[in-house]
């Protein structure tokens, strides 16, 4: 079952000549227990999409369902499945950290033991008596995370969750998300510019560019090995090698699958095609990212 299902989402800001399309056409799903990374450069529409999923802003078109509930028709039921931090940790002015946790406890009927567990997990301890507005960014992030986790959400949305966290906090967060992943109770949609984080945590990665989903792939698929071949006739070589594709600058990209490299070399040579060079590449997320967004500049959308 899809925990999150987004279809044909569109959102523009401004009017007339000043109109900016932030999200042109976004549609993807997050399955139950799945951790999905949401990747794209600045201004590509990640945060706007996450804000629409959180119902902070309204789409111009499209539909969102969370836990099987239509967000716009069954808002309360849909948001009952959701917790999240969008863009930066939102907190109430003038309230202590503890008051924030008690707010969530009251609103979501959270047990005292669960609250204590999340206080422990946040590591904020005595700081909870201080006003949250006096916290550092990292502390705010920890508090917001504790507030999210208190609710045992079915879908957790995190927008740049490691933003402002120190290395200890980052590691703790990663471990916590890994535990969530193992438990398989919570689905996670998170965006991050830290591709290493995404690579380590995500089951699947959704790539967005200029408000459109350009690619979806499994993390294992992304992190595979491939070869680059340079031949004297790349077009003919691509004809004889199924699955081969033109990479760039005279290189052909080959993913091996069940075939061995030797077998490929034999096939190419048997057709009279000379091989100039062969390079082994590890196909990590950074490489995919570079490939997808090469030459992109931030669009400036909200």
């Amino acid at each position: 079952m899809n925990m999150l299902e987004i279809k044909g989402l569109k959102k523009s800001f401004g009017w007339g000549k000043k109109k900016i399309t932030a999200v042109a056409d976004v549609g993807f799903t997050v399955n139950r227990g799945e951790l999905v990374g949401f990747v794209g450069p600045n201004g590509s529409g990640k945060t706007t999409t996450l804000k629409m999923v959180s119902n902070l802003i309204w789409p111009d078109a499209g539909s969102i369902s969370i836990g099987g509930y239509d967000l716009f028709r069954q808002r309360n039921a849909a948001l009952g499945c959701l917790a999240g931090i969008v863009e930066n940790p939102g907190l109430f002015a003038g309230l202590t950290g503890m008051a924030h946790l008690k707010f969530i406890q009251g609103m979501r009927k959270v047990s005292k033991s669960r609250m204590d567990e999340c206080i422990e997990m946040s590591g904020l301890g005595r700081h909870l008596r201080r006003k949250a507005s006096e916290y550092s960014l990292g502390m705010k992030q920890r508090l917001a995370l504790a507030m999210c986790l208190m609710t045992n959400p079915q879908l957790l949305i995190l927008d740049e969750p490691t933003n402002g966290l120190d290395p200890t906090g980052t590691i703790a967060l990663r471990e916590m998300l890994a535990t969530m992943k193992n438990e398989g109770k919570t689905s996670l949609l998170f965006s991050s510019h830290m591709l290493g984080e995404v690579e380590k945590l995500a089951d699947r990665i959704v790539y967005i560019r200029q408000g459109k989903i350009i690619k979806e792939q499994g993390n294992m698929e992304a992190c595979s090995t491939y070869y680059l071949l340079s031949t004297d006739d790349n077009n003919r070589a691509m004809e004889v090698l199924p699955g081969a594709e033109l990479f760039s600058d005279g290189w052909i990209k080959i993913t091996l699958g069940e075939t061995s490299l030797d077998a490929i070399i034999v096939v190419v040579k048997s057709r009279g095609i000379a091989i100039h060079d062969i390079q082994k590449r590890t196909y990590d997320l950074e490489a995919v990212y570079e490939e997808l967004y090469r030459g992109d500049t931030p669009s400036g959308a909200k």
Binding site: S54, N55, L56, L79, G80, G84, V86, F92, H100, M147
Partner: peptide, 8 residues
């Protein structure tokens, strides 16, 4: 708002 409007 980010806390408040995310509540059911």
């Amino acid at each position: 708002y980010k806390v408040l409007l995310l509540q059911p």
